[in-house]
């Protein structure tokens, strides 16, 4: 089953959708599950690790009885457990910067600076020639009275 505690990535746009339950709601649910001893029924998420669920499943006594029809919501479910958020933490990286192209975005002028300098350098290479050509534009076109 789709895990409502984890964010989902849209395969077409690549954008992330928030989990159906906010972290605050997840924490509330975990608290309630611990109060009534049903931690094994919740999917794993940032507020509830897989180990905790396994431990709870081993110790819990709540299980669906096949003869009781209204216990269908207690049946075991295989939740998707892709560790989307923990990937970076496991690699020992600083979570804030993982997946970013550069550490800080910077100002626009800082980001385009190198390209601007490159173009400037190219323009300055032939600048003397360009100025000379610009200034002599009408000289070249003025009809000479001495021309044959």
């Amino acid at each position: 089953a789709r895990n409502p505690f984890l964010p989902v990535q849209n395969p077409y746009s690549g954008k992330w959708a928030k989990p159906r339950y906010s972290l605050r709601m997840q924490k509330e649910l975990v608290k309630k599950a611990k109060a009534c001893g049903m931690v094994g029924l919740l999917p794993p998420g940032p507020k509830l690790s897989l180990e905790e669920i396994e431990a709870a499943k081993r110790s819990e006594t709540v299980a669906p009885r096949p003869d009781k029809k209204q216990d269908w919501w207690l049946r075991p479910v295989e939740w998707s457990t892709e560790p989307l958020v923990d990937k970076a933490k496991k690699a020992g990286l600083v979570t804030m910067y993982v997946g970013r192209k550069r550490m800080f975005k910077g100002h626009k002028w800082e980001r385009v600076r190198s390209e601007r300098l490159r173009r400037h350098r190219i323009a300055m290479k032939g600048m003397a020639k360009q100025v000379k050509s610009y200034k002599s534009f009408y000289h070249r076109r003025r009809p000479s009275p001495l021309a044959t």
Binding site: A1, R2, K32, A35, M38, L41, L42, P43, W73
Partner: peptide, 18 residues
Amino acid sequence: SVAAATKALKKFRIDNLP
């Protein structure tokens, strides 16, 4: 209370089971 907690858990399961 435990009854309220169980009710909330049941609601969660019913809303999210396939």
